[in-house]
Simulated scan of single mutants.
Amino acid sequence: MRNELILQVMETHAGGDVSRIVTGGIDPLPGATVREQMEYLRDDADGLRKLLLNEPYGLPEMSVDLIVPSTHPDAQAGYIIMEVMGYPIYSGSNTICTATALLESGMIAKQEGNQQFMLESPAGLVHIEAHIENGVVETITCGGLPSYIDTYQATIDVPSIGEVTYSIAYSGGFYAMVDATQLGFSLVREEESRLAECAYAIVEAIQARSGFSHYTLGDVGPLPFLHFMGPLEQVGQGFYRSRSATYVHPGVICRSTTGTGTSARLALMNYQGLIQPGDKLETVSLRDTGFIGEFVAVHQENGHAVVENTITGKSYVLARSEIRVNFEDPMVRECNSLHHILSSRHKDTPG
């Protein structure tokens, strides 16, 4: 006999970033809000994240999104984001993938044309607009978190690199924003490993120097992200394009440019006076995939110019499957606290 758990999952990607959507198999989590449920996983039951992002079940480059019941009457579902760096309260690519999975799985019924609904993320309510043609989810537009510049044009000496100029943006997490050209990068796929090494050194240096505090959330942990910015090209009236790459500490270059990375770039462009409400920015990844960010509005809050924005992208369904978790597997037993959220659902099956 063996102890086994079965998880229902849907594999998706947006811009190349793979998101594994867990649609079933997890016990209800404690917490009055999705944010509190996320904090429970983070503090007391981190085993699920470790299980699904590491061997033999996954890779650190992936993300996991756990579907949970919404706790807000206006939201049709809730979701918790898990990445190699921990539990970001928001992610554009993961939101695009989660919304697509909910629609394609039938957990939210599709409506032809433009369909609007709300999801509950750990950051709060997220407005979703899905464009559906012939029963296929063609695009998802989601609200990006209000974004602002915390630090502009600071410099730091980085071992093996030299002096680096950076800005710090907040867009759901704190981002170091660096000019790729000044660091010798063209932002092509062949540079991926060197980009990761460079970003690792820069983030380590900035983390050692200081932390960053959100004006309402307070301390949200060490700097987790870096965004490489390519040259800005104007390709139409109020429409811009830039090659970009987002790094997640430690060691991961995202396949996509990421939604939060795009939101951070919009905040920086606004700070520099380069765009106005209604303008759009397409960020293009090392794999030539892209997201489109729209600068919706700006308001002043706690001394910051806070940019309201949306992110548009397309997610593709890769697979629908079951994951079988064998509790006798020593690689599973290494996932401390997994039993906190799985113990009442595992079952004995003939071995």
Rank of each mutant, 00 (worst) to 15 (best):
residue 258 T to G: 04
residue 281 L to Q: 08
residue 106 G to H: 10
residue 315 S to T: 02
residue 227 H to L: 08
residue 134 N to L: 12
residue 196 A to C: 02
residue 244 S to T: 12
residue 351 G to Q: 11
residue 149 I to Q: 05
residue 37 Q to H: 06
residue 343 S to F: 07
residue 147 S to E: 09
residue 104 E to K: 02
residue 237 Q to L: 09
residue 319 A to G: 09
residue 74 D to A: 14
residue 13 H to K: 07
residue 239 F to K: 10
residue 90 Y to P: 02
residue 30 P to K: 07
residue 111 Q to C: 09
residue 109 A to S: 14
residue 20 R to Q: 12
residue 148 Y to M: 12
residue 297 A to M: 06
residue 193 S to C: 05
residue 278 G to S: 10
residue 193 S to I: 04
residue 146 P to N: 12
residue 180 A to I: 11
residue 86 G to W: 05
residue 294 E to Y: 00
residue 246 T to K: 00
residue 280 K to V: 01
residue 59 L to P: 00
residue 268 L to I: 01
residue 318 L to G: 02
residue 309 N to V: 09
residue 263 S to G: 07
residue 189 R to A: 14
residue 52 L to T: 04
residue 299 H to P: 00
residue 48 L to M: 06
residue 294 E to N: 05
residue 49 R to A: 02
residue 266 L to T: 05
residue 285 S to F: 02
residue 190 E to W: 00
residue 87 Y to P: 08
residue 98 T to E: 07
residue 137 V to P: 04
residue 88 P to Y: 04
residue 266 L to C: 07
residue 57 Y to L: 05
residue 14 A to S: 15
residue 37 Q to N: 07
residue 51 L to Y: 03
residue 99 A to V: 10
residue 88 P to I: 05
residue 311 I to C: 03
residue 337 S to H: 14
residue 129 E to T: 15
residue 54 N to L: 04
residue 69 P to H: 04
residue 80 I to V: 09
residue 170 Y to P: 07
residue 241 R to A: 14
residue 256 S to Q: 00
residue 134 N to Y: 09
residue 317 V to L: 11
residue 210 S to E: 15
residue 215 Y to W: 13
residue 135 G to D: 06
residue 329 D to W: 03
residue 180 A to E: 08
residue 38 M to E: 11
residue 220 V to P: 01
residue 312 T to F: 02
residue 226 L to E: 03
residue 268 L to K: 06
residue 292 I to Q: 08
residue 117 F to N: 07
residue 227 H to Q: 13
residue 281 L to F: 03
residue 295 F to D: 03
residue 284 V to H: 01
residue 47 G to I: 03
residue 220 V to K: 03
residue 177 M to A: 06
